[in-house]
């Protein structure tokens, strides 16, 4: 399991974003930006994923979906909120159906601001998430070793 932290898998979920950040996240996986060179792979299955990338704010309908995906992901996991809406609710903060940023329902580790977030900043966020995932993974290993010794 020691090499696992080098290639965490990423799951992207569109909360209530306007698609602006979504297409930028997708653009990050294509040849010009190619985020996969840092070892991450985009997956659709929450049970395979280590990094949870959310775009858009939380509304009453997708709240349970986000919570469910988070609970299905194996530990350790890193949550990445991409775009101003995912960070705080953004321009839609005052809308009746928006509860706020992703951190209103699940703990967020890394915030990537921007409307829409630029691919460069998304890549920066993902690279930080990879480093954090590695750290979390090491801590978990330490705990385990302490327990069994």
């Amino acid at each position: 399991m020691k090499t696992m932290h080098k290639s965490p898998w990423l799951l992207h979920y569109d909360g209530s974003s306007c698609n602006g950040c979504d297409i930028e996240v997708l653009a990050c996986t294509t040849p010009v930006y190619d985020v996969e060179r840092f070892g991450v792979v985009n997956t659709g299955n929450p049970m395979h994923a280590d990094i949870f990338l959310v775009t858009g704010g939380i509304n009453s309908q997708n709240e349970d979906v986000v919570k469910q995906i988070y609970s299905q992901m194996p530990d350790p996991k890193v949550v990445l909120a991409v775009g101003t809406c995912a960070c705080t609710g953004g321009i839609f903060k005052e809308c009746y159906n928006i509860k706020g940023g992703v951190d209103t329902v699940i703990p967020v580790d890394i915030y990537v601001p921007g409307c829409a977030a630029r691919p460069e900043s998304i890549i920066d966020g993902v690279v930080k998430a990879v480093a954090l995932f590695q750290k979390k993974h090491e801590e978990e290993e330490k705990k385990k070793n302490g327990r069994y010794r």
């Binding site: 569109d14 909360g15 209530s16 974003s17 858009g56 704010g57 509304n59 309908q61 997708n62 979906v65 839609f92 005052e94 809308c95 009746y96 159906n97 928006i98």
Partner: peptide, 15 residues
């Protein structure tokens, strides 16, 4: 549907 509903048409009262 409704997973992305924000209700932005109602923002005309605030902006």
């Amino acid at each position: 549907i409704g997973y992305v509903h924000r209700g932005l048409e109602s923002l005309v009262k605030k902006k």
